[in-house]
Design a binder for these strands. Structure first.
Lengths: 71, 71
DNA sequence: ATAAAATTACTGCTATAGCGGTAATAATAA
DNA sequence: TTATTATTACCGCTATAGCAGTAATTTTAT
């Protein structure tokens, strides 16, 4: 969990969606190289690009902290 | 919650930790400008830089999808 | 009030992420 | 097997995130 790798999750979801890296890249509006990088757990990718990929794959992001957060 | 802004969460946690933007930047090993950008919800920041800030503030990130994922 | 600290904003410069193109493997299908 | 598709890998080039420095503005003290 601490070092759970996002890359394999993305790859798994992409496969399940029946998409190639290129197709996912086009849907997310980014380059194929970046999709490849994300699946390789490259962390220097842009947050916006990662978000775009996650949205296409219907993966939600949640931020949690020990502090009570009444937003 | 769909478009909850991460920036204010970061800012709130930073304040609670009694840190200035500069101090947080130093602790995270990034520039003060980037901390400012993150709090302004700039999404083109690097994932690695965002992660560094979240770690300092003890904010965890979780990825969720409708597909059963046994992490 | 004035002073000090913090935040916001802007400016060049540098480093590098992102990109398409290409090529080489690897996996899948015929 | 061979052919097709997908993935991985590498290459220059370009765009821009990140940076320190600075200054203006805002906030928080005294």
């Amino acid at each position: 969990m601490s070092d759970f790798n996002l890359g394999s999750m993305v790859k798994d979801h992409r496969k399940r969606a029946g998409l190639t890296q290129l197709e996912l890249a086009n849907l997310a509006g980014i380059g194929k190289t970046t999709v490849f990088d994300i699946e390789k757990d490259k962390e220097t990718v842009r947050w916006s690009n990662l978000l775009a990929v996650l949205q296409v794959l219907n993966i939600a992001v949640e931020f949690k902290s020990p502090l009570a957060e009444n937003v």
